[in-house]
Design a protein around this nucleic acid. Structure first.
Lengths: 331, 331
DNA sequence: GGCTACAATGTAAACCTTTACATCCGGTTA
DNA sequence: TAACCGGATGTAAAGGTTTACATTGTAGCC
């Protein structure tokens, strides 16, 4: 069922049908009624694909995240989608699995689809492709991590400050032997978190021991391995700042298997607050990001850009320390 | 940059350019080279929107879930997306929030977009709209719950069996005072889980007490309230089967606040296995669904249907009991 | 009554691709 | 040499909308 079919049936031109649907005021009330009735009768829906072709805008935005199963991304994407839908936009979600090849494929797909905008949690690679995007007229937003492009809209949390909050909390509890499981250093957020950690130690006149800085890939298993290494140290740390929740889960898995008690023998604070953190054993002290607000703001930023004007801006959100039971004073 | 622009630049017709890209064999090698060079030079990408219009297929499939933040859906969607992408399809994800109005809006959007297929976690409403979909030629799959349409592809877990597994496990541990927090009964999966629970009790000659059947809405807070009610009973249950993880979280929140110990005073088994269940306090005994396999199979089913033939089929997956530490013998 | 003005509707082009069919041309075959 | 063939390319239509512009008809005005 197309405009054509309706036009023939009602003995009107396709233009009138189209107008009856999109500009009610431009059409005689009676005509409008007839059109609406027919539309309903045949449950006609305009072909969005064709409309996009004609109007030269898809009203679609692409979101590239590393893994939607990660609660942080799920929550953000949910917020983005809600805001997008409320404004007549559709979102296309792609998982890049922290893999630059998959990210490239995802971006290529979004390019094909001629999306109006892209929210990208960049791996830091694919700069050329991102530039192509910008040239194509799509609005690009760096989310959570910086791609390295300059003069680009960016929405991030203050990673450094979050890490400071976490580390200072451990220091305040009397810990000196404080380690970290850092994220992959090619990601800007991981770098920020590590920098905040090291800064805070130095500010408190605590030396940053190399062995106390373990690197993971933001995935659970790497947290497990990092905990293993730290545990085998001659002087194992008494406190630990983990750069994200998944790795924190890995740490906890190891620690539990090896009879280390939290927080008595080891305090743990993690970046990211999953819905589940409060139900964990023990409930996890975390650095929480305002996920809903970040998602919503990102979409608002995008919408503002579609309306035009305004130079690129950077939104930095402030994370928050939520103290639960995985951290305690040094015994 | 369009085919036209390239054609003019290379002094070829748009047909040749198009062919050079999509049917390399139909074009002289040299010509092909020239085209590819130009394409690369301008980083031209064919307009997928237009292609869809012309070929009359969007190669897009829509997925309507209740909430992507729910780990079960996130995991399933991830699997679907991976499989879809591997086959040149794109997925559009919509959150319906277990709300039939939002579901309707989502379906309408997918209808507009002329998606090739829809994977729907139905609220049970919007039957008419779903029928419209079928008429439109899109392939429809019921996922996780049955919409009520007949002769439709369906992918579900054996809810009844899962509930039996859970309940029998509790019976085997010596419990007699066994309650359940059931899901909303307009959803087929919730009905199956309740039926399995009641059947198993009867099979074991345990009467099903009305007060021991509490109803929730699959969200955390309703689990909290249900636990509250059960706790206030003259004879509180010693064991509890919760119909999904989110409600289980609510139960645990209540139980912990009120000093009930798990599993000593109350054993808990929940449907769904989130990544976090093993890290919970205590690690949760669950009925686990093969999420990846379900997602992948659903997409495969869809792809098979696109290739044509085959009548609608129903895939029933078998869930599994994973015993952790939230269940223990009756003291 | 004849004119303007405006409301309602119609006409047709454009958006960009794919593809059936037509054309052209050099080479092979009888 | 005529006829044919096949490879390479071109022509043009189609897909379903939106929208600028054209047309029609009618009410209002002097």
């Amino acid at each position: 069922m197309t405009l054509h079919d309706l036009a023939r049936e009602l003995n009107l031109s396709i233009a009138t049908i189209s107008r009856a649907l999109s500009r009610p005021e431009d059409v005689a009330p009676l005509t409008r009624q007839r059109v609406l009735a027919a539309v309903h009768r045949h449950s006609y829906t305009p072909n969005g694909t064709t409309r996009s072709l004609r109007t030269q805008q898809t009203r679609t935005i692409g979101v590239v995240v590393s893994d939607i199963r990660n609660f942080f991304f799920a929550a953000v994407v949910k917020a983005i989608e809600d805001e997008a839908r409320a404004n007549g936009y559709t979102v296309l979600i792609c998982n890049a699995d922290e893999d630059s090849a998959k990210e490239e494929a995802a971006l290529q797909l979004l390019l094909d689809r001629k999306v109006s905008g892209v929210i990208n949690c960049s791996t830091g690679a694919n700069l050329d492709l991102l530039r192509t995007f910008q040239k194509s007229g799509a609005v690009l937003v760096d989310f959570d991590r910086e791609s390295g492009l300059n003069n680009i809209d960016t929405v991030v949390v203050d990673n450094r400050y979050g890490a400071e909050l976490a580390t200072q909390h451990l220091v305040d509890l009397g810990h000196r032997k404080i380690a970290t499981v850092a994220g992959p250093q090619h990601l800007s957020n991981a770098r920020g978190r590590l920098a905040g950690f090291e800064d805070t130690l130095r500010k408190n006149d605590i030396a940053v021991r190399k062995a106390y800085v373990q690197y993971g890939n933001f995935l659970q298993e790497s947290g497990f391995r990092a905990a293993q290494k730290l545990h085998s140290l001659h002087h194992p740390p008494t406190a630990l700042f983990v750069a994200n929740m998944e790795m924190a889960a890995g740490v906890i898995a190891f620690v539990r298997d090896n009879g280390v008690t939290i927080p008595e023998e080891m305090s743990i604070v993690s970046f990211d607050d999953s819905f589940w953190a409060q139900y964990m054993d023990p409930p996890l002290t975390v650095i929480s990001q305002p996920m809903e607000k970040m998602g919503k703001s990102t979409m608002e930023l995008l919408l503002a850009r579609f309306r035009g004007g305004k130079p690129a801006q950077t939104l930095v959100f402030t994370p928050e320390l939520i103290v639960r039971r995985s951290t305690a004073p040094l015994q």
